[in-house]
Design a protein around this nucleic acid. Structure first.
Lengths: 208, 208
DNA sequence: TGAGTTACTGACCGTTCGGTCAGTTGACTG
DNA sequence: CAGTCAACTGACCGAACGGTCAGTAACTCA
């Protein structure tokens, strides 16, 4: 503890940050294409334009790269979703905001979503990469909807169904739609898809 | 072609069939717990109570065991679903049959479903175990619903939404519900869950 | 009983791959 | 220009694992 902690980021910090981002971007691409098991660190290094050793200067293990990629995208998505959902008033708009945010984000971050959904699928077998706080983020998203529904119900917008259950239903509907897009089973515009999904969900839950 | 082909199964056939089944059952358990990549052939052999070499007397590769387990469960599930859906008349009943069959089957064949859903998730990254005919089976299930909806619509039961799209929605709703059960996020009875799901879907699509 | 046959075994092989570290590069300093 | 040091490299290591096959056990039948 000799000198003051520097206020400005040093050149070193900038470089480190750059490398972290660079490696993460490369990793996302490789993981999205081959899955966690199928991807090799050599491949990621090559994609990032560095030697394998360099990778390990910035991340302690392959798994950590994976988790970092997952977490980064996940928190961005969660933040954006929350912002959009909280930014509107009615339950109907909140549901639309939820669905639309996911679908748009999926279009812009296909690689991340591929990793995300593959991991969601594997949660069933290996009990979700332990400790990643992964399930929590997912459940938080559902809770977001759940709150909106409770609120909407108290205003007489929604009929009396278990809120958590309905929230899951909407989340599942959305997840399915996004998956279909990733696999290429959907071709229509996002706008139309949002319209259809929200309409369906709304008919299902509104108090007529 | 000297002798007549024997009508009765030889002792040998019985043994082979027994071993196949035994290995497949063991493999299902291991794959369900660890996923394809995480499972080792040694482990499967141990679970089946045979040596590793024996495994290769009955299946040519690890991947083939996996596919066999997948296919077996898949065709049984598809057959059962079709039977139930075709066994009732109205669209409402057909939807209930679809949902109920999946949920019940999931309860009775958890290991299979874990593999199945993990694979569904990985379809997004590795383009579905090539050639497994995997996507086809899934899409056939959706087509089952699609047909029912078209039919129901012509009878005035359902409002005018793209049938394929609605079919996907119901499939997604169901898949989500099953996943939740597998992960342990649902505790209610199957009956109640079927009720809720069908009700929701029905409200969403019926022509009031 | 023993010769022949079939089912099974598990040590072994080759490869892949995550992770390491001794060595190289090149920027900066005095 | 010599010396220092942090960033980077890639050959290397060891473990894990899919798959093989020479050898053994067990069963059949004369």
């Amino acid at each position: 503890m000799i000198s003051e902690t520097p206020q400005r980021r040093t050149k070193r910090d900038v470089l480190a940050e750059f490398r972290h981002a660079e490696i993460l971007a490369a990793a996302r691409g490789v993981f999205a294409e081959k899955g966690f098991a199928g991807a090799s660190v050599d491949e990621i290094a090559q994609a990032a334009g560095v030697a394998k050793g360099t990778i390990y200067l910035y991340y302690p293990s392959k798994r950590d790269i994976y988790l970092a990629a997952l977490r980064e995208g996940l928190s961005a998505l969660a933040a954006k979703t929350q912002e959009k959902v909280w930014g509107v008033e009615s339950l109907h708009d909140k549901i639309r905001a939820y669905v639309e945010t996911k679908l748009r984000y999926c279009d812009e971050h296909r690689d991340f979503f591929k990793i995300y959904f593959a991991e969601l699928g594997n949660m069933v077998t290996q009990h979700a990469t332990p400790d990643s706080g992964f399930e929590k983020v997912f459940l938080d998203q559902v809770a977001l909807l759940e709150d909106a529904i409770c609120q909407g119900r108290s205003l007489g917008d929604a009929r009396d169904l278990p809120a958590r259950y309905v929230a899951f239903a909407i989340a599942n509907l959305t997840r399915g739609a996004v998956t279909q897009r990733l696999v290429g089973w959907t071709e229509g515009s996002i706008e139309r898809e949002v319209e259809l999904l929200v309409d369906l969900a709304w008919k299902g839950i509104s108090s007529q």
